[in-house]
Design a protein around this nucleic acid. Structure first.
Lengths: 213, 213
DNA sequence: CCATGTATAATTGTATACAATAATACAATC
DNA sequence: GATTGTATTATTGTATACAATTATACATGG
């Protein structure tokens, strides 16, 4: 079943290019042209250009005036950086969320972790990546900080591929589930200290699982 | 003397709108239209749209499909968030920079701090804001981390106005200069521990000077 | 053979025309 | 009077034409 896409062409192009760069279809250093992209994606250059401007700000491409668009991509070092920064600030997001999270958001977290348990048993890696993303996104939205939300959502985007590889073994998925439950429990009790603590541990473990350290 | 602008129209529009939002000319909640902006700035809608997409990613505006562009702006809370996050990660940038900074970049930092001393004596606040920005930008570029550079350059952009207000008194400018010299010295000695330490202190002080805590 | 100038092509930058969508005003109906 | 339907308007979304800039190929002169 093919999933329909209802957004604008620009959004479609943006997501597609992001996917193609993160997945490695377009490799670092590769030169892209607007014509080439608009022909490939069967849209005009206008939505392509708008998408390029956004990718530029995300650091996935570099646009050289009147010359070309160069793919920057996500390097191994970038991933390490992102985890290191996440360790610093995602705990902050959890601490904030413990104070401002709503009952609806807590309900949603519960639903997500239940779903996650279901998919962990089924070993459905694709869905696990999605629920993991949803879990974190709900928390940094609940933090009430636009700045935290902006940074962390970009990070999670850029880690998408790397994380999907990380769910390779069920034992890891189970550890992730337990860590999420710890964080959820702390948020439910509105214990900001524990929420921060568990989140820092979780992100650090996630990094170690991914980078094998 | 009017400063000439040599970049693209899109860049000009982006910087102008960013300035207008950060300075408060366009207030939070205000509705903008592409036509209005293109008429004001005497350019077509194309560069305006591209600029809007970037501002959207920076979180300065919110674009509602087929309806309008709503100004989000920078709130007092956003500024507090930005400083709190900067305290977490700008020290990291300094630590990295201590390891990877080049002789040229060190030379540049020296020039910047010398200039800063000059402007501190002259009490030229406008130039002090600029040199302060240059100092930090040089360091997080020297960190060699694309991710750190991206985040911190956005932060410094968004803090532009707030910081220009903070340089109001010469005693403060002098404190900033001393802190910069400490950081420079640590980087010159490639002492990553001290570089991180002094940077954290500096950002914390900057926040306190700005927010009066 | 190398340097330089020039014409050509490729690419991005901008403007404009038109399409799609959502809001609004207003009339018709109950 | 309230509600619903419809025409109009306003706004964003997309495509295309053209301008400006840069790269490339090639010829020309030393």
């Amino acid at each position: 079943m093919v999933e329909e896409f209802y957004g604008s062409l620009r959004e479609k192009v943006f997501l597609q290019l992001e996917e193609d760069i993160i997945s490695g279809k377009y490799k670092a250093g590769q030169k892209l042209t607007e014509n080439m992209l608009s022909q490939n994606l069967k849209v005009s250059r206008t939505p392509v250009r708008e998408a390029i401007r956004q990718l530029e700000l995300e650091g996935l491409v570099e646009s050289i005036p009147n010359k070309a668009i160069i793919v920057t991509g996500i390097t191994h070092e970038d991933i390490e950086d992102i985890y290191e920064i996440r360790i610093s600030i995602e705990g902050l997001a959890a601490r904030r969320a413990a104070k401002s999270i709503t009952e609806e958001e807590l309900e949603r977290l519960k639903e997500i972790t239940d779903l996650q348990e279901f998919y962990t048993i089924r070993q459905d890696m694709k869905q696990l990546v999605k629920t993991d993303g949803d879990f974190h996104e709900t928390i940094f939205r609940a933090s009430g900080s636009k700045t935290l939300k902006n940074i962390l959502s970009t990070f999670h985007h850029n880690l998408k591929k790397a994380r999907s590889d990380s769910f390779g073994r069920p034992v890891r998925a189970k550890a992730v589930l337990e860590e999420h439950r710890d964080i959820y429990g702390a948020l439910r009790n509105r214990d900001s200290i524990k929420a921060e603590h568990f989140m820092i541990i979780h992100v650090r473990n996630a990094r170690n699982r991914l980078l094998g350290k």
